[in-house]
Write a protein that binds this DNA or RNA. Structure first.
Lengths: 225, 225, 225, 225
DNA sequence: TATGAATGAGTGTTCATTCAT
DNA sequence: GATGAATGAACACTCATTCAT
């Protein structure tokens, strides 16, 4: 971020250089994709010679994996840091979404690495992201459950019973999947074309999904009769 | 699909050969990605010599673009064919979703090309997919509007007015984006890990989104406070 | 041999080009060694672009193996062609040795590939040469046996019995090994420093070894004491 | 030999460090070959940092040369130490061979460096080994001469005259070459495949060569006719 | 209509070697 | 006496693309 193009600064401790390299790598991978990104380019952007990149990070694959891991951790940390345990479920979810949209907006290349590149280039990488996704999905699942117990939007004249209706595990998984997908899609759109703020995106998604989730918890179902 | 490996059949009319090549290309691009797929591989899978591929399709980029266009058209056609004009808005949306999930399930490589590969490899290709996405989003927007007029899930004690509330264009776009994202994510999950049918996926998504959409139309809003 | 440096002749049938490449490879490997030889160099010497070398011969390793095989076959063929079945054992051996020395003299690079390079660079290659060596050693063993039956240099007052004495298999192997080693060493010396003809080398080796072999067959032994 | 892997012991006198490095180098060169051995590997095996290797031994080439020299000296010393001046020529030769086979068996990496690697990698190195070879060959030549004067295996009914026949210098050189080659070949075989002891190998070679040599000294000749 | 023959330009990776401390 | 940090130059290998037939 500081040096747009390799201003070959000399003699840095290893840890620092490694971060510089990964910054350059995330940027390059994020914008060009795994295959199109060349180690030459990354090295130059990092202001280092190529052998040094290999000395520290061993191979393109390992470098990519390291990027994925770092960005995944940063993202989950950002989301989790935003959630304050004392709040109601809906407030928690909103806070999490807002942090998610904010973080992806501020780190578009990291987000591209996670969302687009990693999932596009074979098992080993996809698995790395899948872990993060599951972590988040699990968390969302918990929120949904909590919401149900706290009494979610009652939807007064609802056809279902008032007690939290049973939702098959599979369905919950699917819902989390849908929610995360919606958020991801929205993130991409908000950052590129939409030009809306993280807060707006979070509100939009809450409006879109929260009521439906609540309804489901109370046993409402849509069915093509 | 017919010939697993290039059974060099001779002298075919151009149109047929072209389709064979694109079949091979979609399969290869879908499974390996744009950069990892090699023209050699595609030509061999198509049962043709490489120069012929170039003769008909000019370059790797054009070939990829052609694949995207073909698959995008097939997908939108499948979705639109499923929608019968006479039905209510919710039935129409359900039918569209069902067709979407079915088609992506039956054409995983084509779906991979559209969803993963095309969007991962630079503007020219992403634009091609964006067109399709907009087409669908526009269509969804119309449905939402129609739903509002037909009186969507009234949510009886709703806080909003009964008249269809104004939704900013930007918001509608965002909603469509979220819906499509949710559907895409669900499609990936359904095909790979989830193992659920197209009908189930469509139902799940309707449950998830339809109430919320309806609520929005009637002016309900979730807001953090 | 014709073109000292890549006179890029155009459009040759594959078989011809392959031989050209292998000629260049044998020369380069023979003079520089496996590791020091670069594919660029080989390609240039062959008057071809590097990708073509890979297209036809797949990898440096396979190219090297192909060279070894070709040169091994040529050498054994040369030796075997020289041996006329009707002759006595000693004449046969002499003829074989003479052919061996002649061939190695005329193909120093091929000989270097077989004798030096192949055995120096790891199992897969050494095994290839070992096959040839065993073929020749087996052949030599047969000759020794035949010699014994035909009555080899009687060594008139020999201390051993007149019947062909038993030689343990292990010993015969060892003898063949020694003979082949002597021949190889002599070949190197004759070609480089010695400047003696193939005929002379063959005579020298017969003088050196034949009597001893004969003695052994009749049970003579040297023992320290 | 003491430390299998660089147990970075600190602050050693230069001479000791140098020997450690050369031990590591001989091992690495012997097993991997000159080109395949990397300075990194050698430094690590020696338990030293790479710059130190350069400080003491200047370059890969010089390091290799130093290894060759050291191993060559050790080998010739071992051989010469085994020979007791008072003995008959044949006993001397046997003792020398035995020492040769024993030493190579006990120092396979050093032997590999001398026999395989040095001769395979260009003039500068080969010359170093050639010197050792010549030293030994010269010594063998002397032995052969001595044997002639002492009256070697008379081969009682020999066709040649009883006086030591004239052998052209060139021939003697060639014979020594053959003998050394046979010994070398036998050494490789004995160590790897044959699994025979140094004593056995020496005996085998004496049986193989000594009679022939003796015959030659008395003017016996094999000639093709 | 269709292909065997051929290549320029680039990729990831490694290695011997040197500073600065 | 000893090392962590760094690189220029090369190497094996691949790919999209074209030419001549």
């Amino acid at each position: 971020m500081s040096a747009v193009k390799g201003a070959r600064t000399k003699r840095m401790p290893r840890a620092v250089r490694e971060q510089q390299m990964m910054d350059a790598a995330v940027r390059t991978f994020g914008q060009l994709g795994y295959r199109a990104a060349s180690m030459d380019e990354i090295a130059e952007l990092a202001g280092v010679s190529k052998p040094l990149v290999y000395l520290y990070l061993n191979s393109k694959e390992e470098l990519f994996t390291a990027c994925i891991r770092r960005e995944a951790q940063r993202l989950t940390e950002a989301v989790q840091a935003a959630i304050q345990p004392g709040l109601t479920a809906d407030r928690q979810m909103w806070a999490g979404l807002e942090a998610f949209f904010r973080h992806t907006q501020e780190n578009p290349d990291g987000w591209s690495v996670l969302h687009r590149q990693a999932r596009t280039h074979g098992e080993p990488f996809a698995a790395e992201v899948a872990r993060m996704r599951e972590e988040i999905a699990a968390f969302v699942t918990v929120l949904i459950g909590a919401a149900a117990r706290q009494g979610v939007p009652p939807a007064p004249g609802a056809t279902g019973s008032n007690r939290s209706a049973e939702l098959a595990d599979r369905d919950v998984e699917g819902l989390a999947q849908a929610l995360v997908g919606a958020a991801e899609s929205l993130a991409g759109w908000a950052n590129e074309a939409g030009g809306i703020s993280a807060k707006e995106a979070a509100g939009l998604l809450m409006n879109f999904a929260w009521t439906g989730l609540g309804g489901l918890m109370h046993g409402e179902r849509w069915s093509p009769r």
